[in-house]
Amino acid sequence: MSRAALLVLADGRFPAGGHAHSGGAEAAVKAGRVSGAGSLEEFCRGRLHTAGLVAASLAAGAVLGLDPVELDGAADARTPSPALRTAARRLGRQLMRAARATWPSAELDALAREFPKGAHQPVVLGLAARAAGLGAEDAAYCAVYESVSGPASATVRLLSLDPFDATGVLARLAPDLDRVAHQAVEAARCALVNGVDALPAASAPLLEISAEVHAAWPVRLFAS
């Protein structure tokens, strides 16, 4: 298979529903914690090294053949906020539909049967990458990029931030994205030997708390 499949999978226009989620940016903007390019960058950096690292290691683990059901359980344990678990499963279900249509695979079919309401998105992402013939590093890159591109593009809409500024934030994060993607693949390889418990569990207390604040709003622009 072609590595260009990575561009298809990572494309923001891949019909997997990610555009409806802000990755916590909507709650952070409303609380005044994100108010411009500088604070957006710090927000994204924090999300990348916590939720991004965990998602990338789960995705890389799925590519390497770790049991997806066990990975899904590990994702649940690393996501104490029920609002975030629901969002992750909804995104997983949407990605599953798009991935099965794009890269039909018995493994994706089996995971869809196991989790009719959706498995955690990073697990689906890993199996989709595997079905597309991509490697663990590709899936990890996809996950780390998603962990920051979602909040960045949401903030353009929420704050009317200049899109050039938002893109500049993403470009400045590139060295961190490289580091976290490599760290995630290394952790996934380690989990092949030491079990899924060995995967990173980096957490961001404010992302978890704010997700519950956000879920309680009567009206919101983004689903999470």
Partner: peptide, 12 residues
């Protein structure tokens, strides 16, 4: 610590 630990996503 990894970047962003004191920022708006983690401890603010």
């Amino acid at each position: 610590a990894p970047g962003g630990w004191d920022g708006p996503a983690v401890l603010a």
